[in-house]
Amino acid sequence: MNRAAAPAIAIVGRRMGAYGLVMACLLAIWQAAVTVFQIPGYLMPAPAAVLASLADNASLIGSDAVFTVFCTLAGMTVSIVAAMTLAVAFVLSGLLSRALMPLIIVVRTIPVIAVAPLMISVFGREQWNSIAIVALLSFFQIMLAAKKGLLSPSANAIEMMHVYGAGMCQVLLKLRIPAAIPYIFTGLRIASGSAILCAMFAEWLSGAAGLGSLTLDAYSQQDFSLMWATVLVGTTAAYLFFTLTVAAEGLVLDRTR
């Protein structure tokens, strides 16, 4: 187990290291710009001030980050389950696919955040709203990727399964689902990067506890260092999420190959 997980840990370490390096460079450039051009703090606070604010408010930011991450994880779990179920149903039933897919394609063009006020009304101002918005956002990407993956085995492979007398379930379990795994991870990867930022946005609008509300509170109190500190934490969490998905992908694909 430990040995199998080692490459995944290495991936996470390497990617987060690179991210830290890039961030450090950006912050250094930013600090230099603020110092050289004497940009006032209300326009662009200096990274030093942002980092200081991060240290001062560590527990506040920490607890809010935990809340946001929890909502994101819950939302992604819901969407994975729903997306997989529907993708399998679409592959099994051509009629269902023909009836619903056009609607899904139309609905998919609507940005989820644009309907956030409606979601807030329906799901309330607590965590359920963030979970629902994250779930909705990830759902389309994962579902379409999974469907594509389930349909990816060639006609020959499916005929071969039939020749051996495999039933619909066996074709699904032994052929279609294994073939779909890389596709599903592609969908997950795309969804995971934006999921946390989307949850933050939902909180920003609804006022539920979490990083998004903290950003808004900091802004309305004109505490721009705190505002940027929360944004920094949010972006880092988003990148960490993305990286964890990449690592999990490596782990799972290694095992199934």
Partner: peptide, 18 residues
């Protein structure tokens, strides 16, 4: 890419200040 990864909730306040 860097600009694109700044969350919109951080961009909006900057633009309002400006």
């Amino acid at each position: 890419t860097v600009l694109n990864s700044i969350p919109i909730i951080a961009v909006a306040p900057i633009l309002i200040i400006w």
